[in-house]
Each structure stands twice: as C-alpha cells, then as structure tokens.
Design a binder for these strands. Structure first.
Length: 274
DNA sequence: ATGGTTGTCATACAA
C-alpha cells in the first residue's frame, strides 16, 4: 500500500475552458487525487465535466459564473458531501467544499475547502476602492465562518488563491510592495490572524520555511517572467492541526508557468501520508 | 512615475 494517503493540487486556472489542454497535461503528469481550481470563468452548464471524467476525475463539485470567478473541485476519490457558501452575502462562486467519502480510505472524512479571495483592485484604501473593501469584508466573512463552524476541529484542508502574500519572503521585494494590494499590512496581518487564530497550519511554510523565497504567481506583464522573477506567493495550502503531522511534501510546479498559454498562477501540490 | 498582459465579452473591465 502506498504511504500517500491523499494528494491535493490547487491552481488558479484563469479560464478552465481555454486552458483545459494544459490542465489535462498536468493531471496526466501528476495524478493528484484531488484538483482544486479557481477562476474557472465558466457557467455550470459549460463546465468541462465530461473532459474531466474522461481524465479519470469522476467526482466533481463546481460553481461558476459566465466570464468571471468560479471554483471547482474534481477528484478521483468520492465525496460524502459538497457545499458552496455564498460569501459576503453574494452568490459569486468564490467558495466550494467537499468532504471525502468512506471509500477514500485514510483520507475519508477530510473536508477540503477551496477559496478564491477577491483580488482587491489597485488602490489599497477601502474608502476609495470598493474592490478593496470587498476583499477586507471577504476576509472578515472567512473569520466569522471559522469562528462559527470551527473547521480545524475536524480533519480539514483549506486551499486556494487567497490573493495575499503574507510574509516578506513571499514577495520579490517587501519594501517595494508594502503599498501594493496583496502585500499591504492590513491584508498580511488580517490573513495571518485569520490563519493562526483558527488553528490552521501553513503547509507551504512548514515545509519551505522562511527566509526561502516561495512564489506561486508571476505577472503576465513582465517581458520575461522568469528572468525578472517578480513573483508573489498568492496561493495557499492550510491544514488542520491533526493533519499537520502527516504533511509529506509540498510542490510548487514552477515549470508550468512556461507551458503553452499558461495561467499567471502555477499549481501547488500537497501530499499527506497515512 | 508609468505601463506593462491576459481573458471574457463585446469593445470595457477585472485581474
């Protein structure tokens, strides 16, 4: 029997229909048990469900909108239940969760939460920028949700594009990004409090501790993303304390950023041992 | 200081 009880990949795909070919290549290469996607940009009736089934991912949960937002979880392991929460009172497809069924073996009963936090626009002032106000309200909603449901009291994994790079070594220049949305103190402190107060363990930083620089996103706007290497760690994997001892590996799939017609985010894979 | 790119949908807007 494999010592690998559960592998989960998370990836902001920036249009699942446009990028299905590279998603398929990724699944064939890595074969994660579960793939969590953000920014699918697809209404539910146009989600490529049959394509994922053909790739072996029979179990699916997704919510989407036409042209924006959207999250999905596709899996080789069956679900006992699925849930999509409206955040900030809006049904705008920024959260979906599944709990793995008894047939998932050592991974049975693990709940996987997939979040897509609003990017927040350009101006880091909630009074001047509604999108930044929405981002802060979304984080407050996540805090409320965690306080009310205590997700880390049970085996749980939280993944997604949280659109915040919390630590100095999560960005190419801490000093130059202090006023840039994704790395402002109000965001980084709020995210760190949200994570730690509710008992989540940062899986990426557990296995790749500071001060190693870790990025999961590189802008489309660089002439040469790899040469300039102005990245940020916007994508996260958090686990509940009872799973922290089972963290086997975390992989940032940086080469995927150079694949044909890439997303600006790369996939991240976490593996839990039995 | 500014603009740089991408995807979607319709030619603006969000990221």
């Amino acid at each position: 029997m494999s010592n690998n009880a559960l592998s989960i990949s998370t990836w902001n795909i920036n249009s699942v229909r446009l990028r299905f070919p590279i998603v398929k290549d990724f699944l064939e290469a890595e074969r994660p048990d579960v793939l969590c996607l953000q920014e699918t940009k697809s209404p539910d009736d146009r989600f490529p469900a049959a394509d994922f089934r053909q790739a072996g991912y029979l179990h699916q949960a997704f919510v989407g909108n036409k042209g924006y937002n959207g999250v999905a979880i596709v899996s080789r392991l069956p679900f006992a239940e699925t849930q999509a929460m409206p955040m900030c009172g809006r049904a705008d497809a920024r959260h979906i969760a599944v709990t793995l069924a008894p047939e998932a073996g050592r991974a049975a009963g693990v709940t996987i939460h997939n979040f897509y936090v609003p990017a927040g626009g350009d101006v880091p002032d909630p009074d001047l920028n509604d999108k930044f106000a929405h981002k802060l309200a979304f984080l407050a909603d996540m805090d409320r949700w965690a306080a009310e449901t205590a997700p880390t009291k049970r085996p749980a994994v939280l993944v997604g594009d949280l659109n915040i790079a919390p630590y100095e070594s999560d960005v190419w220049s801490h000093k130059q990004l202090l006023d840039v949305v994704s790395h402002t103190p109000v965001e980084t402190e709020t995210l760190e409090r949200l994570r730690s107060v509710h008992g989540w363990v940062d899986a990426i930083r557990t296995l790749k501790p500071e001060p190693e620089r870790v990025y999961t996103w590189w802008s489309y706007r660089a002439q040469d993303w790899e040469a300039s290497d102005r990245g940020r760690r916007l994508d996260h994997v958090w686990v509940s304390p009872d799973l922290a001892g089972r963290l086997a590996s975390v992989e940032i799939h940086k080469p995927v950023r150079s694949w044909n017609r890439p997303s600006d985010h790369v996939p991240v894979t976490v593996r839990l041992s039995s």
